[in-house]
Design a protein around this nucleic acid. Structure first.
Lengths: 210, 210
DNA sequence: TGCCGTCTACCTGAATTCAGGTAGTTCTGA
DNA sequence: TCAGAACTACCTGAATTCAGGTAGACGGCA
């Protein structure tokens, strides 16, 4: 018998998973949680074989939660659930201790295969996104290297740019000199290796920085 | 007995809905479809009481599908399923013949309430997004009025802007004078009533023009 | 304590965008 | 067929953005 724990705020998704597994006699759903707090509470007292973790939880950073679960719990296999097949999120997940990921458009057989694989100590990558991820992997790896983390100020500027503010407006809003704002913008563009604000925002969106 | 038809490409979601309704004796799930084609095929021969329609189908414009179903089938109640509680999408859905909408983070009781309401000839709006929609309704209505349709060229320019191209680059790509490109950009900004390209793109995204 | 990263601010010159025009051509529907 | 919409192109001047610097202040950590 194999125990499964589901972390997802959507009853629809949790229900869908149960539906998919209801006839599988060797899998037992040990519990479900709607958010990080609930999940950690459950995991203090239980150690399920497999944890299905929805990355996009409200009020919770799914990636951080993944990391935290992994640090508390070495034996459970974690399978990330995501709707976007975005290579950057997926790789981040794997870096933080996940054993695989599934897209929410999966079929029942894929779920079973994923569970089987991770239980055998392997990594499972969702079929439907697989090629894309592998495709992006190389560019991502190089991109991530010359991709230093953004500072607090830089993130702030990025956010405001995305809101449609221009240089002088941001300067006023943040009580900074327009020169300073431009410096931050410049640094952002350099870090993400682009030559215009539009491209900056586009890349930022694609990398999940927004 | 009440018949229900589910249009959703995610087995997870379809399964979740079945799970939610499996103990409700008066509801019978007549069928499911994964895309527009399949759905229209089923609806040629059947007329379910309630249709749950996922707006974000792959290879299918959910809004157009909603309209088409409504034109073929006057009696079925259509409930849109969406994950984003975006007022513009929701109002568009209602304009195209939907009788209500639900967010994918709904609970079982909300689903039952929605079905009950639309069967009684009422409109059901998802609880969790309700306030936001009502909030945005007035601004949306006024916004949509002074919101002339974009021309083909304008949409093209908008798309390229979103891709991160600047004026001269677009001019070269489209074999146009830079002046012309600027004219189109200017007209776009006037139509959407903004003062910078960033704002233009932001609004365009919010209105679902991209 | 000294280095390093961050934040701040300034400068210059070139490029691009914005605002407000005018105007000829082409397409299109009533 | 005729009016109006769409597309094209141009001009000017002001504002903003971009690229390439320099440089002081501050905080943390090794």
């Amino acid at each position: 018998m194999l125990t499964l724990f589901i972390i997802d705020d959507h009853p629809l998704v949790a229900g869908g998973i149960m539906m998919m597994l209801k006839d599988i006699s060797y899998i037992h759903i040990a519990g479900t949680a709607k958010d990080g707090k609930e999940a950690l509470g459950f995991l203090e007292k239980n150690e399920p074989d497999v944890i299905l973790l929805d990355i996009s939880l409200p009020d919770t950073d799914g990636l951080a939660l993944c990391e935290q679960i992994r640090s508390n719990n070495k034996h459970s296999k974690i399978i990330g659930l995501t709707s976007a097949n975005d290579a950057s999120i997926i790789t981040q997940m794997l870096h933080r201790g996940a054993n695989g990921y599934l897209l929410k458009n999966m079929e029942r057989d894929e779920l079973l295969e994923a569970i089987d694989r991770v239980m055998n100590g392997k990594i499972y990558l969702s079929k439907s996104a697989n090629e894309k991820v592998l495709e992006q992997f190389s560019s991502l790896n190089t991109a991530l290297k010359d991709f230093p983390a953004l500072t607090r100020r830089e993130k702030e500027i990025l956010l405001l740019l995305n809101e449609g503010f221009n240089g002088p407006q941001m300067a006023e809003k943040l009580f900074l000199s327009p020169y300073t704002v431009e410096t931050h913008r410049k640094n952002l563009m350099q870090k993400l290796n682009v030559t215009s604000t539009q491209q900056l925002l586009k890349i930022a969106r694609e990398k999940g920085l927004l």
